[in-house]
């Protein structure tokens, strides 16, 4: 039981990390990024190939994976999403962007299928994959490292948004697009950067997941829906919320399954999700009035 709780917390924080990018992008652009899972897949593949070619540690891959995913996100936003944004500026419920991100998701997934084939790939890092004992509870080192990376990345991001110049500009844009652009902030530049950061976090999540997970072209699909649930639980746009949402999901999955069949836990998650939406749609940490 103790191990189940520990696993729930560790997995939950990692789920939270996969959702941080999503919640950031929503907070600023007010767009649900359906390509989230595809970006995660890209991060996983980037890490995988880095480890395969250099033979080093997956955590070292961050040096390459983070810039790669950042620029991927940056330019996808610049060339594919921005045009739709501009044409939908006056539309009350912009859904064109959702469709575009879905199109990007299909393109990325199937590009990976054409390039790398359908087979499953893992990397073997014996030094971190073995479960170790902490006060009699068991968890693999890879997940413990993942936990600390998740907390650190979310903390850094939080700090960056709060204190850095760029971060302040991002927050200003997310609160009021028009006012921000009146103050000389280039709205679309901010969007590009935000999207880049969001996808870069997916890249980090990829490096964290790979040591105990696997990668194949449609791997993101499973995490996609999970991430939607997490961000709404925590409150769309809230970074601590994403982490807390992730923890809740991780705990339900891990601890709940000790009492009911594992295949039922997902149903419990959906029901809790719907209840939260109906009762408190702003989520646990969300800003009021956005839903």
């Amino acid at each position: 039981m103790g191990s189940a709780i520990l696993n729930g917390i560790l997995m939950g924080s990692i789920y939270g990390l996969t959702a941080v990018g999503l919640t950031l992008i929503f907070g600023v652009l007010k767009v649900i990024n359906f390509a989230q899972g595809a970006f995660l897949m890209s991060g996983l593949f980037a890490t995988y190939w880095f480890v395969k070619f250099t033979g080093t540690n997956p955590y070292l891959a961050l040096v390459v994976v983070v810039p790669f995913t950042y620029f991927m996100g940056y330019y996808i936003q610049k060339f594919l999403i921005k045009p739709v944004f501009e044409s939908e500026k006056d539309v009350r419920e912009p859904i064109g962007v959702i469709i575009v991100t879905t199109g990007i998701w299909y393109m990325l997934d199937n590009l990976a299928l054409m390039l790398f084939g359908a087979q499953y790939r893992t990397i073997n890092v014996p030094s971190v994959s073995k479960a170790i004992s902490i006060f009699g509870l068991y968890a693999p080192l890879s997940k413990i490292i993942g936990f600390f990376i998740s907390i650190t990345v979310s903390g850094l991001l939080f700090w960056f948004l709060k204190y850095s110049k760029m971060g302040k500009a991002i927050r200003a844009t997310s609160q009021d697009r028009e006012a921000a652009s009146l103050m000389g902030i280039n709205q679309y530049k901010i969007y590009n950067v935000t999207f880049g950061i969001g996808t870069a976090i997916c890249g980090i999540a990829g490096a964290v997941l790979l040591p105990f997970y696997y990668v194949y072209p449609t791997v993101g699909m499973h995490l996609d829906i999970m991430d939607f649930v997490i961000v709404v639980l925590g409150g769309l746009g809230s970074i601590p919320g994403a982490l807390v949402g992730g923890l809740i999901i991780g705990l339900i999955e891990s601890v709940g399954s000790q009492f009911i069949a594992y295949s039922w836990t997902i149903e419990v998650i959906y029901i809790i999700f719907l209840i939260i939406l109906f009762v408190k749609p702003s989520g646990l940490f969300g800003v009021k009035g956005e839903f």
Binding site: M11, S254, Y262
Partner: peptide
């Protein structure tokens, strides 16, 4: 049983 979409099988293994 576990769902086809399960991302983490640790709970099953712990069981």
């Amino acid at each position: 049983s576990y769902a086809e979409t399960a991302t983490d099988l640790t709970p099953v293994v712990l069981k």
